[in-house]
Design a binder for these strands. Structure first.
Lengths: 218, 218, 218, 218
DNA sequence: CATGAATGAGTCTTCATTCAT
DNA sequence: AATGAATGAAGACTCATTCAT
């Protein structure tokens, strides 16, 4: 729908002082939608609520988004691009013991998801995936798949280079990502586990790295 | 549609078209609800659909459940009891190297969740937790909390006995459960990862157990 | 509907000791219905409630009454017969100053309506007359009309005999019945006026009788 | 049915068919509601009917009133204010023989209630008082109580000044108001009594005023 | 650009009524 | 005689969506 008119917040001051509204509107609407969807679910949120939350009228929302679902897909689309590619390029070229790279990668992810704003999109996707398969597909192809593929490649390369224990990379991905993911869900959905993500990450990496260490006797 | 023997529109309104014994009815309704909620989400499923799926009229559903939400809570309640207690007792008494016990536990969980029926409830809970905090609370207290507590206890006891590397048990839980959970989500929500759960478990345990091995030099 | 199997409470003891139920059932159902209709209105009462209140199952109610409305009409029918005829015969034959007769009549009415049970039917009729014109008609013809006619006749005869002021009897009825009726409504519907009905009646009669006194100078 | 210009089923669902100014809408809706409630009772009227009667869609009614009950309370609220205060001020200051004042007052009431529109609200209140105690309370406090209080005050003052027979004012109110009220009910509910209200009032006042005359011999 | 006003299509829920047992 | 089980019909209320202004 081309609903993204290049917000460009870096634009140097020089235009009209009080242009107000427009321009950044679609983004504001998405922010409102994300906030409400996170707290009340997609079905539990009305377009009217989103509009008020963004300081607009209901009809104005339809000026930017053709339907309620478009808010959801718009949300996901907006969150997708930067995340995955960054990780992808970083990893693609890497050679050697995967562990330092994994540490970097997981730290990056952890930092990113420490911001509730950033965490919100995946959580919403997780929840609404069933009712709107479209976004599940989008997220899978654009984020999950890329992420998984990157880690798999990294592990495979590590195994082949003898840097880590010879495990099936496809199966080992879960051991890398699972613990972080698990913690997030426990935290977000059930409110369990107050420990800072950094501490959790450290424990996870300790066990994971020791677990990946090639067997001495081999 | 074809279930309407002799419509006979001359008969005055009201009156049953079918008759069956009760007794198992509530359970049948819950089965239908679970199936539909899993595939379409709670909000995306109408009571009418649940009723037809269970071979009843809409009104009959309200004979057994006072509201649509009651279907959800009923579903969770029914699934809760056996799961957690079993694991709990098994673990509470255990002393020694936690790893064999962990293997047993995870194998049990994996077997259980291999049945889509069994997996359905947690998935639904995960999705609807936001809109119906009640069921999130119920599930947290009755299942998640117990499970986590049991594993924490097992790990602590292992650390104290010197059987495994000295990690913070509270933080290490994620490393035990996360990979399995991650796989399930990838599978259920995104349709990624066709590998049998047993294989995944083996890889996970290999890495985990090696990772928990106490440092030789210490 | 012939739903009135001659309750006959006067039957001498001699039948089975514990026949229990049946026999007086329809009356018990009507009692329950009256109680509930009075407190919650006709529309606000479910057949289930009536049944439980009478100690029966819903279906049993339909054994005695063909429909919910039949409860209403049955209620009115049961209450109608004795009331009006009694007054009618008493008055029809009377000759002379109507005032003593009016005192007797109003006292009788007041006594009768002092019992909330007896008052309940007219109150319900008043309320449901619009939705069920049938009962309005029944009550009008069987009770109100007879009552009014009787009083009119009494007044006319009094006027013709020179016992009371020459008023149009048709118009004066209101002056006789109105005050009592008004008090009942104020009391029942709005909870205003705690004075005993007897006192009210006395004041009413004082004013009414003085008001009906033939003009001295004429 | 004939109100659907160019159905055009090819247009996607939603969207208004008619457009009119707002402003007077709530009042129009209340008018429609009053009309239907009067004829069919509150329970016997659907919101859809009210809407169509007012030339709107059901949903539009909910734009102005949050619930069906709100129509009822809104109706009463709208009718309440002017009625009672008028009578109140008129009477409060009066001194002397209450009879001329009573004539004025009752004439005013009679004129007012000659309009079926005006009569409808009290009738509806009377009927629905049980199911919606809220409106009974509102009406009692705002209308009935004030009216009664005013008349009581008027009578008391008349008794104290020796202008009328020494009756208990609290009990005599019924004699003043009752006949008018009785006639209205007979008329509205049972369709009895075709005589014009003015004639009835005259007869009532003749009897009442003579009845209130102080005893000569005293 | 923006919105107030409006609505069609549903959804949950209730209830009078029926029938096999 | 009595009832538990079942249901068709209907009604209150919501909401995504539209359009005149």
């Amino acid at each position: 729908m081309s609903s993204d008119p290049i917000p460009d917040p870096t634009r140097p001051a020089g235009g009209p002082r009080f242009r107000r509204r427009a321009e950044a509107r679609p983004d504001e609407v998405l922010d409102a939608a994300l906030d409400l969807f996170t707290r009340q679910g997609f079905a539990g949120t009305t377009v009217e609520q989103v509009a008020r939350h963004a300081g607009l009228s209901k009809a104005a929302v339809y000026l930017y988004f053709p339907s309620k679902q478009a808010l959801l897909t718009g949300l996901v689309r907006r969150a997708i691009v930067p995340v995955a590619d960054e990780a992808l390029t970083r990893i693609a070229a890497y050679r050697g013991d995967p562990r330092p790279m994994l540490r970097q990668l997981l730290t990056l992810v952890a930092e990113r998801l420490a911001d509730p704003k950033a965490l919100a999109v995946p959580v919403v996707v997780l929840r609404e995936a069933v009712s709107v398969p479209e976004i599940a597909a989008m997220y899978r192809e654009e984020v999950v798949q890329k992420m998984v593929t990157a880690v798999v490649r990294l592990l495979r390369q590590g195994v082949e280079g003898g840097h880590i224990r010879p495990v099936d990379p496809e199966l080992a991905v879960q051991s890398v990502m699972g613990p972080v993911f698990f913690h997030l869900v426990l935290n977000q959905v059930f409110g369990i586990g107050r420990a800072p993500l950094a501490d959790l990450l450290e424990t996870h990496l300790t066990i994971l790295f020791a677990g990946l260490e090639p067997e001495a006797g081999r």
